[in-house]
Computed example of a mutant assay.
Amino acid sequence: MSLRLPPRADVRLLATAVALPTDLAPVGQRGRVMDEAAVLAHIGHVGVPGAEAANATEPQSPLDAEVTTRQWVQDADAIDLAVEAGRRALARAGLQVNQLSAVLCASSTPVSISAAMAPRVVARLQGEAADASIFLPCAHDVRGGGVGALQAWITAQGLIAQGAGPVLVVAAETPSKFLQPGDVGTALRYGDGAGAVILGPAAGTDLASRPGASFLGGLAGQRPLAGRPTTIPGPLPPQGGPQAYRFQKPDREHLADLGRLWAQAPRALGEAFPAARADTRYVLPYGVSHRQMATAVEALGATQAECFHELARLGCVGAASPLVALHGLLASGRPDPGCVVCLVSAAGNGVWAGFFWALDEWACGQALVSG
Rank of each mutant, 00 (worst) to 15 (best):
L329E: 11
G94H: 12
R210A: 13
R88N: 04
H140P: 02
A226C: 11
V184Q: 10
G365Y: 06
S214T: 10
R252P: 12
A202M: 06
D23P: 09
H140C: 02
V340L: 05
P335T: 06
D251W: 08
S108D: 12
A118N: 06
A156T: 13
V111S: 04
S133L: 12
G31E: 03
V48S: 07
P274L: 10
S108A: 15
A82P: 09
P21Q: 05
D10M: 06
R30A: 11
P181S: 08
T109D: 10
R8Q: 10
H309D: 15
L219E: 05
L20M: 15
V83N: 11
R143L: 13
I160G: 05
Y282G: 06
A256C: 07
A38S: 14
P322F: 11
L359F: 11
A278T: 04
L236P: 03
S112I: 05
G94K: 12
E306F: 00
F308N: 00
G371K: 02
A353G: 13
W357M: 07
V39H: 05
L95S: 12
Y282A: 09
S370A: 15
F308E: 08
H327Q: 14
W362E: 15
G193V: 09
H290P: 04
P62I: 14
A363N: 06
Q29W: 10
G318D: 06
L20R: 15
H309W: 10
A331P: 02
S114P: 11
C138I: 12
A54I: 04
A76L: 05
F273C: 00
G348D: 07
A54Q: 15
A93V: 13
T303D: 02
Q162H: 12
L40Y: 06
R267E: 02
T186S: 13
I134C: 08
H290K: 09
T22V: 14
D192K: 01
T174Y: 07
P285Y: 01
G94S: 12
V142D: 04
N349G: 15
P233C: 09
V317R: 03
A203G: 08
W357T: 01
F178D: 13
S2E: 06
P59R: 04
A265G: 09
E310V: 10
Q99S: 04
H45V: 13
G158S: 12
A17H: 03
V324S: 02
Q264K: 04
P166G: 11
G195L: 10
A130G: 08
A164S: 15
R8P: 01
W72A: 05
W357G: 02
Q74I: 15
Q292M: 15
L188E: 05
A37T: 14
A363G: 04
G315Y: 04
R228N: 07
D192M: 00
S289K: 01
A102P: 08
T303W: 09
A347W: 01
G28Q: 06
W262M: 14
G227D: 01
W72C: 07
R189Q: 15
A116D: 10
A353R: 09
P175F: 12
L40D: 05
V39G: 03
Q292N: 11
A54T: 08
C364W: 12
T280A: 14
R124I: 06
E128S: 13
Y282S: 01
R124T: 06
